Computed example of a mutant assay.
Amino acid sequence: MNPALANRPGQHLRIAALLCTLLLSLLGAGARAELQLLDGIAAIVNDDVVMLSELRAETEMIYQQLLRTQNQAPPRDALAGQVLERLILDKLQLAIAQRAGAQISESELDQAVAQVAEGQGLSVEQLFAQAAADGLSRDWVRDKIRNEVIIGRVQQSIVNRRITISDQEIDNFLNTNSSELLNAEELQIGHLMLPLSSGTDEQTIAATREKAEALREQILQGADFRQLAVLHSSGQNALQGGDLGWRAANQLPTAFAIALRDLEPGQVTAPIRTDA
């Protein structure tokens, strides 16, 4: 036994108390650090990441947009899953754009911001004020629109590379009554897409069709199509309630045009399986 310690019996207690106090202080600091955590990683996308702050900001923006345009919105936690998928896809497409050197000038960005504002019936300053009310800065809005324009160009480039027009299609176009093309009916279309990859087994195909039928039945029973699209669709317009905007009937995929031909406004098609 160490005689120095033996002569001071209370020192063990004081040392133990000091260690306990230090340990509690460290635990307290750790707890405070956890409460003050400002950011983290929501997903890793190749050499990039989706930050939790990005996910929160994007989810809140979509949530507020849905409230303004549809007077209702899914719970934020349910919406966040769809938003995260969208952010991951955006990161992948922006990486493609960066490798291709795609960019837009400040004047082009100004025009794009003005178009977004006009599409919402707002002035540019009103658009920024609305974003500020949602906790989003002017720079955040401009960066968001810049990325959307760049992604749109990437998507269009991919589509253009895939388009092949045969001589027969040219002949068909030339033989078509031009006035019929110019006067084609326009439709505002909602789209809810459930994905099927190539080589999917029959059991998965059947389960996906069953889900599509169940969603259609919910819509027929009065469920909001846009809300279901936000929660379940994997289409690019899912977070806009599946709204594809106004499309000329003769510019739609053939399967869509046939299915929509005899529908009245507000009606919904049966599930359609397509190759793309």
Rank of each mutant, 00 (worst) to 15 (best):
L55N: 02
T59N: 11
I151F: 14
R8L: 09
K91S: 03
Q115P: 01
Q115I: 07
Q227S: 08
D275M: 13
G121L: 01
G81C: 08
N71T: 04
Q82P: 01
T200Y: 03
L260I: 15
I205T: 01
Q65N: 01
G119D: 11
L192C: 01
N160V: 05
I189H: 05
N250S: 15
Q120G: 08
D139I: 07
A97E: 12
I150L: 05
E60W: 14
T69H: 07
A6Q: 08
D171C: 04
E264M: 02
D167I: 10
E106Y: 11
H191N: 15
S178P: 02
A114K: 00
Q103H: 03
A112M: 10
E202K: 08
A117Y: 08
Q156N: 07
E106M: 07
R14H: 03
N183S: 11
D90W: 13
L22K: 06
T59S: 15
Q130S: 11
F173K: 07
L174C: 12
S179I: 10
Q11K: 03
N183K: 05
D171T: 13
E180P: 08
E169P: 10
A255F: 05
L182D: 09
G40H: 15
H232N: 15
A80N: 05
M51D: 12
N172M: 10
I258Q: 00
F128S: 09
Q98F: 12
L127D: 14
E58H: 12
E54I: 07
N71V: 09
S233K: 00
A57Q: 05
V49C: 13
T59D: 02
D167K: 01
I189P: 03
Q115F: 05
G28N: 06
R138W: 06
A214H: 00
R247V: 09
